[in-house]
Design a protein around this nucleic acid. Sequence first.
DNA 1: CCAAAAGTGTTTCCTGTACACCCATGA
DNA 2: TCATGGGTGTACAGGAAACACTTTTGG
Lengths: 224, 224
Amino acid sequence: MGHEVLAGVLQIRDGRLQVLLWQRAREPHLHRWSLPGGRLAATEDVETSIRRQLAEKVDVHKLTHVEQLAVFSDPDRVPGHRVVATAFLGLVPSDTDPEVPADTRWHAVDELPETAFDHHRIVLAARERLRAKLSYTNIGFALAPAEFTISELRRLYSAALGYQVAATNLQRVLARRGVLQPTGRTVPAGPAGGRPPALFRFTSRDLQVTDPFAVFRPPSGSVG
Amino acid sequence: MGHEVLAGVLQIRDGRLQVLLWQRAREPHLHRWSLPGGRLAATEDVETSIRRQLAEKVDVHKLTHVEQLAVFSDPDRVPGHRVVATAFLGLVPSDTDPEVPADTRWHAVDELPETAFDHHRIVLAARERLRAKLSYTNIGFALAPAEFTISELRRLYSAALGYQVAATNLQRVLARRGVLQPTGRTVPAGPAGGRPPALFRFTSRDLQVTDPFAVFRPPSGSVG
DNA sequence: CCAAAAGTGTTTCCTGTACACCCATGA
DNA sequence: TCATGGGTGTACAGGAAACACTTTTGG
């Protein structure tokens, strides 16, 4: 019984949420598109393993966030002998265009090609996790450049969530939570004119839960 | 390389959040307490496996909820050759007292005995998951009897969350979300008198996200 | 001066919290 | 009728959404 690690590496490219896939050159599932990853080695844990394996496809320094998604373990999920997969979500900021091998390409998540095995499900799980965490964490830092304007950030959130987010409220919500910081600098306006936008950055570039209690908050002034 | 499944099975007993553990009768970690589970067989997926293995410890019909937590894969997490573990959260309603084997016992999560391997971490992960989901899902159904009074439910939520929850607001929040239903019936008052409490039930006994968007809701009237 | 884009002020709504008050029972 | 626990009504606060309005640029 084998164990593999797989990652849905997501990035906003051309205003759409895209995932990194490579095209199989062998049976089974010849020519279908599949997730980067590979076999878990004996001396590494799953996170070390997926980072090592991703390094072969993407410059690993560009990976701003990696987290476990779930185990996929249907006995027939791949033909032949049984392989359990631990799936990951990986994120790359929108201002990088990592070199990728020739057999590898970015695909819009809402227009996936024919994928191998159960990789389609895994990509959708990665998207769901990202969407959920955009609401209650600062995970946006992993999709955005180091510094950005509110409109750029709005486009990133809109693409990831799949619906339009208003710039006004985006800024206000993130500012109230202390997630965003103004840099004090601005950037020249575009060709159509307009007021030159201010540059912002994320206060922290580590994942933090910013809205921990949806309800049933502990009484104010107590410790969890 | 082996694969095992382990479950943190939680129940509110005597007003405290408790976890089901069994005491090892062999080295390594002789006499330490460990989580129920065992080796993943070749023809089952991880969820089937954990349910099968739990059936040996608890009447499986009493398990109202089972969900994946995470993979624990440190190469040295157990001595000897390498075993990857998929951990689960399991829940048992407070009105059942399942028969358990002689080596098995319930332990308060906040006063764990010496546990084997990395099982301590897994128990804490199970508690965190439960606490988080109590806020934004109807997962309370899995801790509560089929019908219950608001005070009973308040005690369950307080024990699971680790702080006092007000009955007034608990009822209001769950009612507003459509999670609770009055049965119309009441129950005799206790020995100290008092108004006889009304009986409620959960509208659904399947896990449902009741508060999906912390923020960045899609514009009202759109589809995700 | 006008169009365009960015950013701010203001209003409204909703949800959850806090707390006072009313209700129904046993002794 | 009083103590006790259950339940409701009401006021308050915070956060987010909607939208009008102001600011700052390019042409």
